[in-house]
Nucleic acid binder design. Structure first.
Lengths: 349, 349
DNA sequence: CCTCGCCTTTGTAACGATCCAAATGTACCC
DNA sequence: GGGTACATTTGGATCGTTACAAAGGCGAGG
């Protein structure tokens, strides 16, 4: 059973063909499990494949067949647990389908996004899943990816000409409904002065969540003070820093719907610094249900978005589109679920 | 300026050549910025490239040149923020170098790891960065990746025949020193009965951290009760569940060095349930410095491992190896830094 | 006018797989 | 024995790019 040592040059189809005295075409048929080849021949070829340690060259096959076996996954912030979970979900499904994931991380820079997209395009992905950086422009993205490769927009809308990108599929969270549910829940707890805290107006998800909040407030006949709408960078640090602003107006809020969990956890710290105990003196809700939300003090009422499931869904959507590009583009809104925990207490008496 | 509409078929070198009446070879030279081509010709070709919206086909080029422009990144748990940060660091460097990241996530399953590795190998990566699943076998991994492609082992050792894989590069955290530092710090605070809590003996990082702990205890002449060495799945949930075990022995510990931050945060909850307040009645330390560690209640003393820097470093190491495979394999031990916070209080008086 | 060198350009054969039409058996029936 | 059907195998062209050797044009120098 002389094993061929793993030396420099790679083993190709021709080596196998030569090794067991058949044509390259036959070996190729064996590789693809064609029923055409004789049982006995197949066995001989398979033995030779093992013996020489053959590795299929998918790039060569893709070139010849004009196919692709990769999907590009471009994320604005891979380090964010939400997107990490999302990526894990995407990769899970793609892996099972024989596709490989081409990863690209843009660190929220539109410039880098374009660079990453063009670089990935050169590898000819069958499709692209893109969670755009803040401020991404539809026209520019289109010119980077070309009109041919299917693209699924995740999580955020892009700015600019709608016509430029109206053939892209979309997968968004139900931001508006989520924020409305959170707001309604706080109203149900008896709050009347409710703020919307954090996030960037530059991002579509923030605008949508604000819209849900406004909708609920309006429906309940509650008014909103300007000082209750505070923007901040959606991370814990800036959320602490900006929390003062909530209390600058004439009347202080008794509760806040926060842009996301990170912001909510930051606000908790800010409240502590003011001598307020979140979940007793002040109610708040988050968005995302990150791992930490369940175990913070107090545990955070928030909206579960199940990013891993979203990743799986995104992969399935793009695969469908790759399989059949003809149906009209589809926009999918994924539901979110309100998880009530101790942070959303009733107002102090 | 008639723009060619973005129709089905992809634009190739030949289309450009035909479009401006030069040979394919010339276009190829232009693409690669060769100084051979005449300035005037170059301009004409470049104009045509733009006009037709040409996209370089790197797969075809790689096939011809027998090169590769991708690096495989295979992680045992992408959803873990530690690895997500790591991946972001890897991708950052690779992106800057013109390489593309092929992602593979194994969900801590050795079976899936082998499947993912073989699938990625078919795309002919120039190198592989592997953070193995628990229980991975060197021999099996070797047979999946072949002896040719450079591999960098990250974070964990693999079991089995050392000779099988002694030509792999390695990048590990200084687990032993980290745990020793944490233990010494607790000893310095006055603790004598210190436990080592959590982790799986199946993983080499856990064994190394235990070794550091044991080393420090021995050096200080402190003895260790068997009931102070508790295993658990390294997540918050199981850490809560197993925390009872710490107090089953004759003498209860007053402090614990935890396998990692997740475990430490779980133990905090377990302590609360026993009526003990962590950071006052019981001291503990973590490992990793996840975002949450700085803001837990109390803030967690832990070891910073800067996963993003590790990712960058891993990318650089594998790129070096790809560039020149000849130097002998190298093992790199990345330093960790003790961050003292409120959780590591002195023992109660 | 021929030769030489220089600057550009180009035809052709690869890279490793697949497709396709055509060629080889070989079994069976009339 | 010839013809037909069926099962199996195969050469050669091809995917989009690059390497290489060789060719073309052109000015200078002898």
């Amino acid at each position: 059973m002389g094993n061929i040592p793993p030396v420099g040059r790679k083993v190709t189809l021709s080596d196998i063909a030569a090794g067991c005295d058949v044509s390259r075409a036959t070996v190729s048929l064996v590789l693809r499990g064609s029923p055409l080849v004789n049982k006995h021949t197949r066995a001989r070829v398979e033995e030779e494949l093992r013996r020489q340690g053959y590795v299929y060259n998918r790039a060569a096959a893709n070139l010849r067949r004009r196919t692709s076996s990769s999907i590009a996954l471009v994320l604005n912030d891979l380090a964010n647990p939400f997107f990490a979970e999302f990526a894990a979900g995407v990769d899970e499904v793609l892996g099972d389908t024989g596709f490989v994931t081409l990863l690209g991380s843009t660190s929220e820079s539109t410039e880098r996004e374009l660079a990453v997209l063009s670089s990935l395009m050169e590898h000819g992905p069958a499709g692209i899943i893109l969670s755009p950086a803040e401020g991404s422009d539809a026209q520019q993205i289109l010119s980077a990816v070309g009109g041919v490769t299917p693209l699924l927009l995740f999580n955020r809308e892009v700015s600019g000409d709608v016509a430029a990108c109206d053939h892209w599929d979309r997968l968004f969270l139900d931001n508006q409904r989520g924020a409305r549910l959170a707001t309604e829940h706080l109203i149900g707890q008896g709050h009347k002065r409710i703020a919307f805290y954090g996030g960037h107006l530059g991002s579509s998800s923030c605008r949508q969540r604000r819209a849900g909040y406004t909708e609920a407030m309006k429906a309940a006949g509650l008014s909103v003070e300007p000082s209750w709408m505070v923007e901040c960078i959606p991370n814990r640090l800036d959320a602490v820093a900006q929390s003062e602003q909530l209390f600058q107006g004439k009347t202080a809020p008794t509760a806040a719907v926060c842009y996301n969990d990170a912001v909510a956890l930051g606000l908790m710290l800010g409240l502590h610094q003011r001598g307020l105990q979140p979940g007793r003196d002040f109610a708040l809700t988050g968005f995302d249900d990150i791992a930490e939300a369940a175990v913070s003090a107090p545990p955070l009422t928030t909206l579960a978005v199940t990013p891993r499931d979203r990743g799986r869904q995104a992969a399935e959507l793009i695969l469908q589109r790759v399989k059949d590009p003809s149906p009209p583009p589809r926009q999918t809104i994924a539901p979110v679920q309100l998880l009530v925990r101790a942070s959303s207490c009733p107002p102090p008496a």
